[in-house]
Write a protein that binds this DNA or RNA. Structure first.
Lengths: 157, 157
DNA sequence: TATTGTTATACTCTATAACTATA
DNA sequence: TATAGTTATAGAGTATAACAATA
């Protein structure tokens, strides 16, 4: 068994903190979302769908960075709740165009309000200015990675 | 299909950004860790083990906040690589005391250096001061939730 | 009886291969 | 032939129930 020396180099990695907070928010959010009959993946899909507007399932899968095969069941569940709608494309009958329903838009707003409460609870250790700083730092870091792009740039976007 | 109005309330949730960056770091870290024959769970276990020192499997499971049943296989894999050691306790022969080996301590240092590189790549959009700000904001938020506590305080710690 | 480690089992999330219908 | 959606399947990660050894 190793003798623990106090020589631990203390690398100050931010990723463990990032991962910890992400997990805390996710766990609390899951409880909150259960009341809506939704899981995190559903909310992400609805959010992206609102951003990109109507598109094919392949488009949505690309935007969500999940496999198209896993998208099928996800959309089935959202369609069962009438939150999204699939229509066969007239131009290319292989394609299913997907979009939010009115009920989907409304439910997403309610969910976001609930998530904002969870978030303020988890970030309670920070005051308003600090929360704003955190947001802008994260946004800047994400922007440096090429988020909010429609075509795959240098990296995988 | 819903008509998209520009009335989206723009709630500015930080959790999606947090989740996005966490995922980016995790995916890149997984590739890096594969070279060491390790996955994220292994690194987390080694890190916590270095922090808390030698302890029973139940202690380690509590510190890791994972189920003791899942810890068994994890420790088997780490023991196969001679990174940790299980010894039966003399005081209570039901207990297996677990600790890092010298090889485990050394490998963890190498892994941390590799992870620091991944991190600086993902956070390249931020300069040195901004990365330091991000770290301290995350630390403060985590501290507000009762991290770095040995006994379960108000929350689940 | 209670606890430690263990095994077996199930459920979710994710990734891959193969099928269908269209092009 | 290639592509969009689908299905089936397998692998991780996680959680619960039951068991053997020990207290």
């Amino acid at each position: 068994m190793a003798e623990l020396t106090p020589t631990s180099q203390e690398l100050r990695l931010t990723s463990p903190l990032l991962g910890y907070l992400e997990r805390r928010i996710r766990v609390e959010a899951e409880s909150e979302l259960a009341a809506f009959g939704l899981r995190p993946r559903h909310v992400i899909a609805l959010t992206v769908l609102r951003q990109i507007g109507e598109g094919s399932q392949a488009d949505l899968a690309t935007a969500l960075k999940i496999d198209r095969t896993n998208l099928v069941g996800l959309l089935n569940e959202l369609e069962d709740q009438d939150l999204v709608e699939r229509r066969r494309s007239h131009e290319d009958r292989r394609r299913h165009m997907v979009g939010l329903t009115d009920a989907g838009v409304e439910k997403l707003s309610e969910v976001e309000a609930a998530l904002a409460k969870v978030e303020s609870r988890v970030l309670a250790g920070l005051d308003g200015d600090e929360q704003a700083s955190l947001y802008s730092l994260l946004e800047q870091a994400a922007a440096g990675l090429g988020v909010s792009c429609s075509e795959p740039p240098p990296g995988d976007c």
